[in-house]
Design a protein around this nucleic acid. Sequence first.
DNA 1: GTTAGCACTCAATGCATTGGAGTGCTAACA
DNA 2: TGTTAGCACTCCAATGCATTGAGTGCTAAC
Lengths: 350, 350
Amino acid sequence: MDLNERKLKILQAIVSDFISTSEPVGSRTLSKRPDIDLSPATIRNEMSDLEEMGYLTHPHTSAGRVPSDKAYRLYVDQLMNSADLPAENKEEIAKRLGDGAAELDETVEHAAKVLSEMTNLVSFAITPNRSDSKINYINFLPVDESTVVLMIVCEDGKVTNSAIRMNAPYTEENLTFMSKVMTHNFKGKAVSTLLTENIAATFESDMASLSSLSGSVVPSFVKTLEKMLNVDLYMDGYSNIFRLPEYNDIAKAKNFLETVTNKDEFTNVLVNRDQGLMITIGDENAEDLKDCALITADYKVNGKLVGRLGVIGPKRMKYGEVTSVIKYITDNLSKSFEIEAPKEEDEINE
Amino acid sequence: MDLNERKLKILQAIVSDFISTSEPVGSRTLSKRPDIDLSPATIRNEMSDLEEMGYLTHPHTSAGRVPSDKAYRLYVDQLMNSADLPAENKEEIAKRLGDGAAELDETVEHAAKVLSEMTNLVSFAITPNRSDSKINYINFLPVDESTVVLMIVCEDGKVTNSAIRMNAPYTEENLTFMSKVMTHNFKGKAVSTLLTENIAATFESDMASLSSLSGSVVPSFVKTLEKMLNVDLYMDGYSNIFRLPEYNDIAKAKNFLETVTNKDEFTNVLVNRDQGLMITIGDENAEDLKDCALITADYKVNGKLVGRLGVIGPKRMKYGEVTSVIKYITDNLSKSFEIEAPKEEDEINE
DNA sequence: GTTAGCACTCAATGCATTGGAGTGCTAACA
DNA sequence: TGTTAGCACTCCAATGCATTGAGTGCTAAC
C-alpha cells in the first residue's frame, strides 16, 4: 500500500482541518471540501488505509480521525504550504521590534514578546552561549576599602562584572598590576578553556607579591567565568495556552506550565537542539514535551554568537505561519545587529 | 449590635475553616468543633448577625457562609494566631537560601523560588529601586576601534555598563579624560537627580575638544542612567495556582495568569506599595487583583537599599504561615548581606 | 474502483429525580 | 432572655436514563 497522491491530499486536508479546529475530522466533513471530490465512503476507505499506515488515529469508534506524530512530520516536511509572511505582518513585526531597546538582552527579550503575541503561543529566547567567547581584557576597579569590581571584557564587546569582597587591604597599584598581569596571561583565551586552567598558579608565579589578595580574587574570578557561561532564558505568553482547547483540561495545563517553567530543564532542552530552523513534534521531543511541538531558530550577532528564539505549543500548530514569523524575527534580529556593527564589512572585504 | 467575643470566635472559626477547605462553612460543621460549644441553631443566629454586619456572605440560600473581605481584614489584624515559624522550617529555609549564589540578583531570584516552594503560591521579588543611588565613578573603556564600554559604579558597589558604538574615532586618552571629567562632575549625585540635569552642557563646557564624541556618548549615558532605574521583576511558582480549587475554573486561572504575567503593570503595583510587611486583601487591591491577597516585605542591603519580596494568591490564604515565611526570608536576606559588608559595623560604632 | 445504504458505536446533551447540606423561623425550654 | 430543638423549605450537585447525532465499517450494487 503506497502513499499515492489521493492519500496525500486527504491526509493534508485532515491535518490542516484538525490544526484549525482541534476536532477529529470525519469523512463527511472532508467530502464537503471543494478540493476533495470524493464520497464519504471512499474517503473512509482511504482513511482506514492511512490509519493502518500509522498516519491517523481514532480516539474511539464513532469519532473522526486525528493525525499522528508521523502525519505531522510528513505535513511539515512535504504537505504544508509555507507561504511567505504577508507584507502587512512583516511591517507590523518590524515596527514592533523597532520599539525595543538597543541593548542585546533587552532586544532579545522584546523579540520573544513580539513572537508570542504574533503567534498566540508561549515563546522563549535564550541568550548566546558564550563558552567560545575570547577574553579581551580584565580590569579590577576600586569601589571602597573592602570592595573591588572585577570586570571581564570579551572580544565581542560583552562585559561581565562582579563585586569582590577583599579579605585583605589593597592599593590601586595592586589592582592595576593584577589587571595587567591577568590580561596579559588570559587575553585571547576562550572562557571555557580558561576554566580548565589552573588560575591560582598564575597568581603564584606572576603575582607572588599579592598572595594576600589571591584568596579573595581567584574564587571570584572563577565564579565570574562560570557566570559568563550561563545562558539566560526569557519566556513570554504563558497565558496564551488558555486560548487552546487542548489546555481546557486543568491537569494538562498544569503539566504544561510545570514543564515549561522549570527553567533549568527547559534551558537544557533548548541549548542542546540542532542549529538552524528546527521543528520537533511529539515523540521527537523529550518525554515531558511529547504532546507538544517546538519550533526554534537562531539569530547571530556579529555573524558569530548564536542565540535562539522559538515557540512551544500543541502539535496542532500553524506550522507554516509560525515558522515564517520566527524566521522573519530571527533574520531581523541578526540583521539589526549587523548594521550596528560596521566591523562585519571588514570581514567581507578580507 | 456589637462584635462580642462569641461572634469573634465564630468568625475566627469560619475564616480559618474556609481558608483550609475552600468550602462554605455551615452551622453544623462549626458546632462540632471542640472550641465551639454551641448548638447549630445558636450559631445560625450569630452567623445571621455577622452577615448583617458585613463579615459574611452567602453564595445561595442553602449554602454555608463565606468570609467577606472585611472578615479577612479583621482576621489578619486581630484573630489569626501568627505563630512563629517552627524551627525545622527555619532550618530548611536557611539551608535552601544558602544554596544560592553570592551575587545579589541571583540570591534574590533564588529567594523568590524558595518562597514559592515553601508557600505553594506564586512568589515574586523586585530588585531595589536605585533612583537614590549615588554615583561613585564613571569609566570609559575601549573594546575595539568603534566600540567602548561605559561603566557606572555606584557608591553601593553596584555596577552598570553598556556598550557604546562610537560614530567618530577615539583614543585611549579621550576615554581617560572623559572618565575623569564626568566622574568629577557627577560623583556623589543621585541617578534620578542626574537625569534632570543637562548632561550635554557638561560636555560642551568641560570637554569642548571632544565634541565629535559627545553625539555618541551623551544619549548612551542617559540611556544607561535610565536603565539603572529599571526595577527587575522575578516571579516563580506560576503552576502552583493549579493546586488551588479557586483556579479550577479555566477562565479564572487565565485571568490570574494574565494579570500576573503583565510584568510592567505588576511591577508598578509592587513598587508603589508601602514599605514593611504589607498585606492587602481583595478590594484593597487594584481592580485586576480584587480576588487576590498580596503579602510583601522588604529586605535591605547595607541597611539602605530596599528590595521587595512577596506572594500573591487567593484571599483564602494561610496568612499566618505565609507571613512568617516571608518575614523569615527577608530578614535572612538582609542579614546575609550585612555580614558580607563589614562596613555596617562602622555605622553602628559611630 | 466507487458509492449508497444500513447497522452499529459512543460521546454528548438534556431532563427528571433524588439526596443532602444548609438555612430561617417558630415554639419550647432553662 | 438567651438558647435550643424541630421542621419546612431551598437549592446545588450528583445520578441515572433516554435521546441525539456524528461517525465508522461492512456489504452489495453500480
